[in-house]
């Protein structure tokens, strides 16, 4: 019983963080056909922004959290305004933007290294302490992670399905030309999408760093997982990314519990390979796959 609770708690915590990272990435790809290679660095920037707000300004945790999320949004907006918008109409946009965002990612990561150094700081933006469910120790921070991820993702789901602004994003994702014919200013929609993805990444970065440490390359591993989750879910499926993230989080927690922490990622990737052989378009993907 305790084993089950332990797996559920750490699995959901992992899954919630993965979901925050993956949902933004899925939204970006689904709407713009853009793979944001700097997504991991967006997470890192959110984490460092929150860290700096507390460390250098002594702000309360909630303010630091908001600053981290805001920083993610700002970097997303800058990415669109300074880079992406000029590439939108180019031939082979998908490849161009992949290379460009990878470049921006490297640049930003080096910039963080220059400013903060390579020292692994601990994230002050977290709630300390534990409580017990049965014989299992649960940190308050896991609860914070679960609640924050649920709130942010629910807010996104609500916005996408219930507001005009969200309908414009979905319409653009489904058919860009048709959306333009409806009067949707798609360039603005893309800006909004990158801001949202950046904010979610910022939040994910703060939470991830609260469980380990801050470092300029901390976003790499979570970004790889976010990519993997998007591929398993089916590229561009936002709901699918959320569900796949939770499922893979639970799977990884179970593996870690029974086999050891180091087997978590490799076995998760093995599962992904199996899933993709069975369903090449991903679990929730609608793209048709042509096999020769």
């Amino acid at each position: 019983m305790d084993a089950l609770i332990q797996i559920l708690v750490s699995g959901l915590t992992l899954g919630a963080m993965y979901a925050l990272g993956a949902v933004g990435l899925a939204l970006t790809f689904g709407t713009m056909r853009m793979f944001n290679m700097a997504h991991g660095v967006f997470m890192t920037i959110g984490a460092y922004a929150a860290f700096s707000t507390v460390t250098y300004f002594g702000a309360p945790l909630l303010v630091a959290l908001l600053m981290g999320i805001l920083a993610g949004g700002v970097i997303g907006a800058l990415m669109h305004l300074l880079v992406v918008q000029f590439m939108l109409e180019t031939e082979d946009f998908e490849i161009n933007v992949l290379v460009a965002t990878a470049g921006v990612g490297i640049l930003l990561q080096d910039f963080l290294l220059k400013v903060y150094g390579g020292y692994p700081f601990s994230q002050p933006v977290q709630v300390e302490g534990i409580f017990r469910i049965g014989g299992v120790a649960v940190t308050y921070q896991s609860v914070v992670i679960l609640v924050l991820a649920t709130v942010l993702i629910s807010a996104l789901a609500w916005a996408l399905t219930r507001t005009k602004f969200g309908m414009a994003i979905r319409a653009t994702a489904m058919n860009r030309e048709a959306a333009m014919l409806m009067g949707v200013r798609t360039s603005r929609t893309y800006l909004q999408v990158l801001i949202i993805a950046g904010m979610l990444a910022g939040a994910a970065g703060i939470l991830i760093s609260s469980l380990s440490t801050l470092s300029p390359e901390m976003g790499q591993n979570p970004a790889v997982r976010a990519f993997v989750i998007c591929v398993v879910a089916g590229l561009g499926s936002v709901t699918g990314a959320g569900i796949a993230a939770i499922a893979l989080g639970l799977f990884e927690a179970a593996i870690q519990y029974y086999f050891g922490v180091r087997y978590g990622l490799p076995l998760m990737l093995a599962l992904v390979v199996v899933v993709l052989i069975w369903r090449p378009a991903g679990l929730f993907g609608t793209q048709e796959v042509v096999r020769s």
């Binding site: 979905r170 319409a171 489904m174 058919n175 030309e177 048709a178 959306a179």
Partner: peptide
């Protein structure tokens, strides 16, 4: 537009 171009998921 030609071919309707509906928002298929809606």
């Amino acid at each position: 537009p030609q071919g309707d171009q509906l928002f298929t998921g809606m």
